[in-house]
């Protein structure tokens, strides 16, 4: 079979669910369930949560839906969220994620305000140094200084709740970058001094599991399947919320794609065995 035929076949198989309505069932995802339950236990109203959107266009297909769904959950729990990134490619997502969730919740009558309920710190270089600085400083407002738009943090209502690292209840990070999560684990001393949740791409799932086993990651969302399962859990918890049909269509496309890959593996081996015989 020529490679071009395989490419075309893959494209057709993945596109099919976008043109034809194919309802599918979302399988259980134990990691997403664990993340959901732990977040519900740990985040109380007015808890300050740091959310790191450390991804770019290369991994946004998996990290972006995760950040949307978890941000919505955090706002619904009444958390005060501080968005930031160590990836310069994440600027668009830093502005977009809170805005999209804010507009969605507004349609339900839930008012989420910039400065009071969330702030965007923007891009910070040198993750190890920044995280180390957060753990060491006595005055987070002075350390963070300004938000992404140049407003001094002290002028924003959310900063009234900030003193040192102990005023941050939870850290959540979404990334597909290799080595990025280790910065958080090492310098936030996750598991002992801080509570850390992680949204990873499917590639880093096996790696992330060693940290969930040791307690260094309290909750884990695994790629697109994880965010779809999380969506379902959120809809169960908040039945009036608007469902994201797009993510479900993407997941059904993924299921078709996985089945196609499985078929290719089987066909490839059968054809090779026949050639040898």
């Amino acid at each position: 079979m020529s490679p071009k035929a395989i490419y075309l076949g893959l494209f057709i198989v993945l596109s099919a669910p976008f043109f034809v309505d194919m309802p599918i069932e979302i399988p259980r995802n134990f990691s997403a369930e664990g993340f959901f339950q732990e977040l519900e236990k740990t985040v109380k109203p007015k808890s300050v949560v740091m959310v790191g959107l450390d991804y770019g266009p290369g991994t946004s297909a998996e990290n972006y839906p995760q950040s949307l769904v978890v941000t919505e959950h955090l706002f619904r729990l009444g958390a005060k969220v501080i968005f930031f990134t160590f990836s310069p490619q994440a600027k668009a997502y830093l502005e977009n994620v809170p805005k999209v969730v804010q507009e969605k919740l507004k349609r339900e009558g839930i008012n989420v305000e910039y400065g009071r309920d969330f702030i965007i710190l923007g891009f910070r270089p040198a993750p190890a140094m920044f995280l180390q600085g957060v753990m060491k400083t006595d005055d987070l407002v002075k350390f963070f200084e300004r938000d992404m738009f140049g407003t001094p943090l002290k002028d924003l209502a959310l900063s009234k709740d900030l003193t040192n690292h102990s005023s941050i209840a939870v850290w959540v990070q979404f990334t597909g970058l290799v080595g990025m999560v280790q910065n958080y684990i090492q310098f936030l001393e996750t598991g002992s001094k801080t509570v850390f949740f992680h949204g990873c791409t499917s590639i880093t799932v096996p790696e992330a599991h060693i940290y969930t086993d040791s307690g260094q990651i309290r909750g884990l969302i695994e790629g697109l399947p994880g965010s779809v399962a999380y969506e379902a859990l959120l809809s169960e918890r908040f039945p009036v919320r608007e469902k994201n049909k797009n993510t479900v269509i993407q997941f059904s496309s993924l299921s078709f794609g996985q089945a196609f890959i499985f078929l290719l593996i089987v066909m490839g081996n059968i054809i090779r065995r026949r050639k040898i015989e």
């Binding site: 494209f11 946004s60 297909a61 791409t201 499917s202 590639i203 096996p206 993407q250 993924l254 794609g257």
Partner: peptide
Amino acid sequence: STVSARLSILIERI
């Protein structure tokens, strides 16, 4: 895991 990740990126583009 890599298969799922790569397919997800392509699906987003589609």
